[in-house]
Amino acid sequence: MLVLEKNNITEEIEQLVRKHGKSRSSLLPILQDVQRKHKYIPDFAQQEIARLLDIHPVEVYSVISFYAFLNTKPKGRNIVRLCKTITCDLAGKDNVAKMIERELGIKFGETTKDNRITLEYVNCLGMCDQGPALLVNERVYSKVTPEKAIKILNEIK
């Protein structure tokens, strides 16, 4: 990582610490903000968060590794998550999944070559009355058909 990039990250995290506070309970909101912006939490960011909150970097890593929506490896610009829990499964999520995989040419868990989309499964999104449900970044789409899914994906930049 370039020195310049490191400085930017340090500055960003200092701002977040000012916004959320220096206590341990601010850790999750800070991580969520970094995740939202970068789509992952870089090693250097983890170290800086640890330094500024005065905790061990391992603590930061341990928290990140626990939560499904936080990750330490780079992902695509957009994260597309398909609900795989029971009612979306009954409503035909398999057909949607296969269509998305074919159309994007990647499997679930992978990222497109142009870094546009990372495809993941997710557990219950709370849209069970309107399944199958698709979460694009933080926006939810319901009653997704294979055709509708492709339309949604094509609109993502």
Binding site: R24, S25, S26, L28, S62, V63, F66, Y67, A68, N123
Partner: peptide, 20 residues
């Protein structure tokens, strides 16, 4: 941040405190 177990009240509190 996407953890089912955090619906359990003590796990929820741990999460609020910035822990796993």
């Amino acid at each position: 941040s996407g953890a089912y177990v955090c619906g359990e009240e003590t796990a929820l509190i741990e999460s609020l405190e910035g822990n796993r």
